[in-house]
Amino acid sequence: MPSDLTATAAPAPPGPLRAFWRAFRGNRGAVMGLVVVSLIFFVAIFASVLAPHDPLEQFRGFSKLPPFWVKGSDPRFLLGTDAVGRDMLSRLMYGARVSLFIGLAVMVVSMLAGVALGLAAAFFGGLVDVLIIRVMDLIMAIPSLVLAILIIAIIGPNLTNTIVAVTIVGLPRYVRLVRASALAELTKDYVTAAKVSGVRKFRLMTVTVLPNCLAPLIVQAALGLSDAILEAAGLGFLGLGAQPPTPEWGAMLADTRDLMISHPWVMAFPGLAILTTVLAINLMGDGLRDALDPRLRRS
């Protein structure tokens, strides 16, 4: 036996983050989505620095200007102006801020509420479980936008209430997901072991079980972000979301119908912004899902 063959340690297995990144990186679409989403976030955060004009300022005598590649455009307004002479590019940039803010707020609140309700349903069982699941079923029985409209009708249309309505509408998916994964974890040996060793219920819920339910929850959060943005834009379009003159993409589309034929770009840009954002987040979400948990499949 040759003595110079010292046992070399097997390469350390990649950490979970590394493994995730390796899987995510292999998905071209997901990486593209991530790049676009990062760009949109960048624009949203630095809108006040990047935007050439105030999104609310109306430039008299400069209304309905076309974007730069069309004849008759003004170099000061790269993407033209809307019906009352506000700079389209600036409004779109600030709109990114509004849409992402709504989306992220909905996502964070849904995650917190979803985890709390889902864990409660799984751990306490019995009446608590039945009650929570029944209420979630009820929410799911009413078509999302119809329920959101009903909620807005009661609490009034504005930005905060949009977040409330969209959160309630999307909540069942989070609750059911957390409940289902927690129930699945509860049957496993490590939970029994923890119970036997005297871990308290609250600690068992949050420290022992919750981390093992996170992968599907993260995927759901990414996809929930794009759903929330779409839903909020739909409400804005119906006049039940952010109110004018807030530069919200959906609301920007609402009053373009009369201009649609003569000045199509006023209508084209906000919609394109919504589509790009949602598409990029979905691409990223698909990649996340494949990398984190290949078993999860979204229709």
């Binding site: 589309l253 906000p270 919609g271 949602v278 979905n282």
Partner: peptide, 17 residues
């Protein structure tokens, strides 16, 4: 995926146009 991400109110306006 594009269809799935489509804001349908905008899609409707584009098609009308």
């Amino acid at each position: 995926l594009t269809g799935y991400s489509m804001p349908i109110f905008w899609w409707g306006l584009i098609l009308i146009l």
